[in-house]
Structure formats: C-alpha cells, structure tokens
Write a protein that binds this DNA or RNA. Structure first.
Lengths: 140, 140
DNA sequence: TTTGTTATTGAAAACCATTATCAATAAGTA
DNA sequence: TACTTATTGATAATGGTTTTCAATAACAAA
C-alpha cells in the first residue's frame, strides 16, 4: 500500500484531497513504528508547515475509519497509530526501537475453542500482541 | 484473594491503612468487571463518603505497583482496572456486561517460536485477550 | 496511653490531550 | 470560471489525570 492508494481511498469515500491530508498520509504510511498524533504533527509539518494539530486528529480519525491505520496498545500508552496490516494480522513490537512487524497466525482456534468450552463464553474476537527485540536491536 | 489480604500487602510494603484505601480496595477487589477511576470513586463513596477522586487515582497506582490489579485494554478505552489474576493469565471479556474471566493457556510457545524464527525477533512477552459473550449474556 | 513524626488526605489549581466552535479558505464539480 | 460546501487552522472548551498544599490521622516509640 502506498500513500497514493490511501489518498485514492479517501477520495473514493467522498473526502477531498488536501495538502494537509497528503502530509499526514505520507508520514503515517511511511512509518514502520506507531506514531502519536503529536509525533505525526511534528513530522508532517516538515512537509507542510501550515498543518494544524487538529487536522492531524481529524485525518487519523478518517484513516482509522477506513481501516488504513490501527491503534496500537502498549504498556506506556494507547494513543499511537500504525498502518494497518491487510486482513487479520497480529502485531509484534520491538521494545527498544518501536518497530512494528505483522504476522498472521490463527493457530488460536484450538485454544479459543478450549477456552470457550471451559468458560461457557462464546468467543468472537481476539487480540494477540507480541513484544520483544527486533533483529537489528538484538544485534546491538 | 480477599480485600484483607490486599490491605495486608499494602501494609507490608510500608503503606498506611486508611478508610479511603479500605473503601477503594473493597470496591475493586470485589468487582468482576474492570472499573475506571470514576466508577471506583462513585462506588467506593458509598462506603466512605469523604473519599476524594484523587485518592482513588493514588490508591489504584499503588495497587498496580503491587500487581494486585491490572489495566484492561479495550477498543473503547484503556483506563479501567481489574484485580489481577495469579501468575500468568489472560483475559476474556464479555462485550455485553463487561464481566472478566481469566484463563491460563500457554500453548502459545509453538506459535511464538515460529514467529521468532520467521521475523528474527527475540520474543519476551505476549498479550492475549479474548472477547465474546459470557454464558449469562448469551442466554438472553 | 500519649506523643511525635510523617504519610495521607481532599480541595483547588494546574496540566495535557482531545474535541467543539467558527469564520476563512480552497477542493471539486458544473 | 463560478459556486457549493468540505476542510482548514486558531481559539476556546472539555474532561481526565496530576500537582500543590495545608490539615489530618496512622502508627511507632516512649
């Protein structure tokens, strides 16, 4: 997925293409780690100085609505966003540099069914997130 | 774990036992769903009217520090706390009534190792959370 | 028990992230 | 090119959380 495709998606859904949105989209789409609204603001302003923080919030809101980005939950906070993986994916976070990797892995069905049986719950969703060190950080 | 044990833990760690803390501890320890600071405040004030919201925040902070409670992450927010399970446990949340159930299940080792191999990450932690309907809510 | 030290308290103020308001602007269409 | 209206950034408002501070009360020691 490139920034152009994200912009096309926005346009297809009736949103206008503006310099502010272009700057935000290019920033978030390119990042391999989760960014907070303020981080996006700081970075995107290098592309478009007049950008306002409020517009960052509004644009992130729309990108999340279109499932182009997703919120990342971490012990230190849950305000950061990363470009969303395609289909059902889980996250793997580097605790040192913050880099995010995606992985598929629905070997959870067995576990899920066993838990459903034990607890009487009807399970419809799951969140799985792994934490560790990426190859680069592990080397240092 | 009873409220008395939580209070004992606080005392052992050099914290004083006060009516405010007793009210907060009894409220949180008894709940089978995650509570936000304001919810704790409202509920605990029925036991101790003079309680201040600030004290709720401070007490929750200490309980978390002692691993007696843990933060619960949900799509709608991540400010709520529930009494922590013993040892390594995962959460199962009812999307209707909010009831929380714990389960163990470290069948994740196989998955974790496979992901580590594929991605080059060294994995040290994982978060797993299931969502669904509890038996009672499923019946209605 | 009484006393003294000091952690704890609640109220108020400060803080910070997020959201709402609003007039000016500019995107997209006819 | 002109027109409609979504979008913008600045400002203000909001709401949750944290800090400040003087008064209080827990609890250890006498």
């Amino acid at each position: 997925m490139s920034a152009e495709l994200w912009l096309a998606q926005l346009h297809e859904n009736g949103y206008r293409l503006t310099d502010a949105r272009r700057a935000v989209v290019e920033t978030v789409e390119k990042s391999n780690r989760a960014l907070t609204p303020v981080e996006v603001y700081d970075m995107a302003r290098k592309k478009y100085r007049a950008l306002g923080l409020v517009t960052v919030y509004r644009t992130l809101e729309k990108l999340e609505e279109l499932h182009l980005i997703q919120r990342v939950h971490q012990p230190m906070g849950c305000q950061a966003f990363i470009s969303a993986g395609e289909g059902h994916q889980h996250l793997l976070l580097c605790q040192n540099c913050g880099q995010v990797a995606f992985f598929e892995g629905d070997d959870l069905d067995v576990l899920t069914k066993s838990i459903a049986k034990k607890t009487g719950y009807q399970i419809s969703e799951h969140w799985l997130q792994l934490f560790g060190l990426c190859a680069k950080c592990r080397a240092n």
